[in-house]
Amino acid sequence: MSVESRNEANPGAEAGAGNAGIIAGTGAGVARTGADTSGAVAGVSGTTSARGGSGRSGRGPAWREAFTPRHLGETILTGYLPLLIALAVIVLPLVWMVIASFKPPGEIVTLTPTLWPQEPTADNYAAVADRVPLGRILLNSIIVTAVGSLIKVVLAITSAYALVFIKVRFKNIIFLGILVALMVPPEVALLPNYMTISALGGRNTLWGILLPGLGTAFGTFLLRQQFKTLPIDMLEAAELDGAGHWKKLWKIVVPVCAPAIATVALVTIVTEWNSFMWPLVITDTPENMTLPVGLNLLQSVEGQTGSYGYLMAGAVLVIVPVLIVFAALQRHIVSGLTQGAVK
């Protein structure tokens, strides 16, 4: 019980508080329970073939043990307490953002802030629209995200198919080339791409924002791994059933690998939506900016204090859509973003 007292001595500390307590308690938890281990990781291993879809069976009596009188204290101190602290640290800034976006300036520039807005207002959103062409910027972001993701995913699908299912020599050399491209961070190409796109007249255009990012090494790599797990018999059966490469791709491979493709698509969409550095470099007129770049502009034209209401409204616009998508489809997104971690 020394564990518990140590924890109590540190009640207000941050997420990392009471190290020994968390470790001790969890060690015990792992040893005792475990019927449900697959459920919690299902999100991570969603598309990694071996453990995919193992579901959340067995969420039965196993956890009840945590609430027996004997374990209740331990459960709260080493389970819920650290979790609550962590959740507070993670969630509070976002909640603060949403609330502030509905506060009038007087409630933001104050020494005695209240949690809820006293006079909730949507003026901040209107103010954002006053300062930057918000409709245009939102539309740009949506177009860039939609078109960019669509092209990237289609290219990833056809490339991965070609690399896995078309029998030609030297294709491994091409794959190696794509693998090396995977290691090149986009920042490295920033300056030369700026020169190329400028020379092509692509500054302050949507295609200029889109074009350099369309080649997809990440999606190709991820889908190739996935396609390789398909039974080759199935593809041969389709061939004997009279399906050429095009039909095999769209009628067999794509439907069967739909979950993995959805993962790649979601990760691509989120990445495109958040993309900042390249659009920042290639656009300088507000009408052609995407949302992150527009917000950067908004922040630089506003003085640091007093305008936080507008800035939080802007942040809500860029953050909340992704939060909604993530909440609905977190399984796919987490598995895509942690690829490679779970074998």
């Binding site: 938890g29 005792r32 459960t75 979790l83 959740l87 958040n274 942040a315 977190q330």
Partner: peptide
Amino acid sequence: VLNRNIPGRTFARTAVFSPYVLSGV
């Protein structure tokens, strides 16, 4: 902590991961 068999941890895991997908801007 998340590995402990307690109710609510699926939500907690989603919440903890969420900042990772948000716009850095």
